[in-house]
Design a protein around this nucleic acid. Sequence first.
DNA 1: GGAAATTTGTGCGTATGTATC
DNA 2: AGATACATACGCACAAATTTC
Lengths: 240, 240
Amino acid sequence: MEENKQNNSIWVIKKNSIQHQTLYEQISDSLEQLIIQNGNDLVKLPTEYELAKQYGVSRTVIREALKLLKERGLVSMHVGDGSYTVRPGSAVISQTLERVIRFNRFSDNDITEVRKALEINAAGKAALLATSKEIEEIESVENLMEYNKNDIEKRVEYDCLFHGKIAYASGNKLLCALVDSLMDLIKEYIRIRLEQSPAGNELGIMWHRKLIQSIKAHDENHACLYMRQHIDDSLHQLDS
Amino acid sequence: MEENKQNNSIWVIKKNSIQHQTLYEQISDSLEQLIIQNGNDLVKLPTEYELAKQYGVSRTVIREALKLLKERGLVSMHVGDGSYTVRPGSAVISQTLERVIRFNRFSDNDITEVRKALEINAAGKAALLATSKEIEEIESVENLMEYNKNDIEKRVEYDCLFHGKIAYASGNKLLCALVDSLMDLIKEYIRIRLEQSPAGNELGIMWHRKLIQSIKAHDENHACLYMRQHIDDSLHQLDS
DNA sequence: GGAAATTTGTGCGTATGTATC
DNA sequence: AGATACATACGCACAAATTTC
């Protein structure tokens, strides 16, 4: 029954050597193409048994292929229910970044530098492009942050959301995804900073307000400047 | 023989609901911890059979766990040989970014904007921090690019390498990883741009030379300025 | 250079959890 | 609420490929 297995195998030229691509790799790539082409979110996939029949392979192969796609953030699997397509968001980026950063021991300083480069850009673009609705949202998040300024958990959550909303208002979706990822990564770091120097609480609020003012005034230069100083502050607080 | 399967299952509280964590997820997390703690690269893992025996589960579960780690860029598997630990580099970041970008249809414009923010920062830092050895490398890559300026494949390759070397000279490893990833993503885009407007070839070389001069002179402001104009150029060439 | 040992790849059956009627 | 159907989770056996002697 397995003498046609050779037919399922393909050989690809890769880096000056012939290399075998396994079945589950072929099928996960094939499924990824279909999922991307479909584009829609939360589409129920055929059952593993069904897919196995369609591709002419065992369910094991299908399972391993689906596992890869799950890890790539493209599908979710549920026992007794089935598998569904998922739109990969910034979560998979931040998970990947976190792993690479952990493994290669990148410093908080490096992360903050990158964050600064991206967020200064985001603030400037937000000042130019933010709609009144987006500005409203930024303000309301800021109000929530100030209201919860003594509850460190909530304070940090709204702080990150504030920066995320500004990135969103920049209109650049990649910028937004990256900022979200980095904020996710340095949440812990922000929490520690606030616990160590409570004065940073009021200072952060001041910069946030100035930022909102310059975005409202569509003042790109000041938005960039305040964002730079705001993030520089957090770096210096750690040093001291 | 399987009545102790319940013992292997654990239940974790997650997002206000009890959720089952599957065996392969537990084991992949466990193995990831071990790999990260070990830290060293290219360590040979025990065989799947061995791991199965150690964890008291079937080889299928071990395989699925290893598949996850492989997809995370932490291990590589070889038939007839074994599995080895791998240090996740910028490749996994660019793959992840590519997927998210494709699926969410981010524009070339957005990507270039982010690239600009990061690379301007990198150029400025490189001007401040580049060692003479790093400057030498940047120059030699630039010479290779100019020498191969009529071979589009090589020209693009060395172009990307040039930008990568500058990011490396910035001393910020995260910045370097992200720039590498983005260069990987827009290689195709650079190639198309060069084919459409050959004049961009000489223009690019000019900016590269100015960049090298300002880095040599440790002139942060001009390095930033030239990088900004260099990348702006490539955007405008597409528009026209 | 070939045969044996080793290791990963694939196929299939059973157990378990979930949704539905 | 309970029983049944169904889909995924897990375990075992064999095939294929690579290394080693």
